[in-house]
């Protein structure tokens, strides 16, 4: 460690406590919790709670939770999931702070005896007016079940970041959506019944990561003849791209270009993006500030490809 210049005050502190490290201990609980909130929740609970008496209950004040359960191939899937579920339930039950600011859940619900029930329950626990970031990655290797997100999610007006991946369904079509703070959205295809309704309820969206592989959702929506839809908010508009190779089908979303700084669109398979590239280049030309990345994720086709194309 490089030698340090210490002020008189600091020098005294070092002498008194035998090291700078104690200055960390003298921090308020809220700051220690801040550090813990960057750790996987199981580390905060199982490791740092054993550090000292003071650290024993720190995790109970966490407002940020990361729960991840990787399915394994050992044939113990169901048993392991039970333990994981037990852990998540225990943490959510024993926490002292009722307000969750950030919640990440990643698991394969096929292993759960009750399938969607626990994922649904945990999501409901996370939903509260203070929720700022929600990331759900729900897998089901059987491909049979979907987690239907509760409508109460639509009341999370402080949501800044939302990531929905996997076997999730969210109905927004008939409810009206308004996420006035949402800046970052990652959305896998076919999760939301109407992307248009969802996106039009996100007036300050800055980053959109959307991947879709079947343009059917879009094609089925009756669209006005104009390629641009203006919504009531004057600063907000959606552009629909027409791609000739699909006949008259409308494909794609590039929207809210005025405030968007980054749009990330994944197309499957690659031949789709080849036909879209020139259009994106044109958009990029007229919106210099916008960083559009087009990603060719052909490797994912196997995983997500539903066989509706070609």
């Amino acid at each position: 460690m490089a030698p340090k210049l210490l002020s008189g005050k600091r020098q005294k502190e070092v002498e008194n406590h035998g090291g700078d490290t104690d200055r960390i201990s003298s921090l308020p609980d809220s700051l220690l919790c801040h550090i813990l909130s960057f750790l996987p929740t199981k580390t905060s609970v199982a490791t740092t709670s054993l550090v000292s008496r003071r650290w024993r209950h720190l995790w109970q004040h966490l407002q940020v939770f990361y729960f991840a359960h990787d399915s394994d191939e050992s044939g113990q899937g169901s048993k392991m999931f039970e333990k994981f579920a037990f852990f998540v339930n225990a943490v959510l039950a024993f926490r002292k702070s009722r307000d969750i600011r950030k919640f990440e859940l990643s698991c394969d619900i096929a292993w759960s005896n009750h399938r969607c029930d626990c994922a649904d329950m945990w999501t409901r626990a996370a939903i509260n007016p203070y929720l700022e970031e929600l990331s759900l990655n729900i897998r089901d290797y059987t491909g049979e079940i979907n987690l239907l997100l509760p409508r109460s999610l639509l009341n999370c007006t402080n949501l800044v970041s939302l990531s929905l991946v996997g076997q999730i369904k969210m109905n927004v079509g008939h409810f009206g959506v308004y996420f006035p703070s949402l800046k970052w959205l990652k959305l896998q295809a076919e999760i939301v019944d109407s992307e248009i309704v969802l996106l039009s309820g996100c007036p300050v969206l800055e980053t959109l990561q959307h991947n879709f592989f079947v343009p059917v959702t879009w094609a089925e929506d009756p669209l006005p003849p104009s390629q641009r839809l203006k919504f009531t908010d004057g600063s907000f508009s959606w552009t629909f791209l027409e791609v000739d190779s699909f006949g008259k089908q409308t494909l794609g979303i590039i929207g809210n270009l005025q405030s968007m700084v980054d749009a990330c669109i994944d197309f499957f398979p690659s031949q789709i993006s080849e036909s879209v590239d020139p259009i994106l280049t044109r958009i990029q030309g007229s919106y210099n500030e916008l960083d559009i990345q087009l990603r060719h994720l052909t490797s994912k086709v196997k995983l997500y490809y539903y066989g509706k194309l070609h």
């Binding site: 090291g19 201990s25 199981k42 709670s49 550090v51 000292s52 852990f87």
Partner: peptide
């Protein structure tokens, strides 16, 4: 890392570890 003194008695710590092992078996 944090320069924290362990203020659990060995018995307490063993008990806590046991408790955590029970509560969160298979997790950590």
């Amino acid at each position: 890392y944090f320069g924290i003194e362990n203020d659990f008695t060995p018995e307490e710590e063993a008990k806590l570890r046991e408790e955590l092992a029970w509560t969160f078996t298979g997790v950590d």
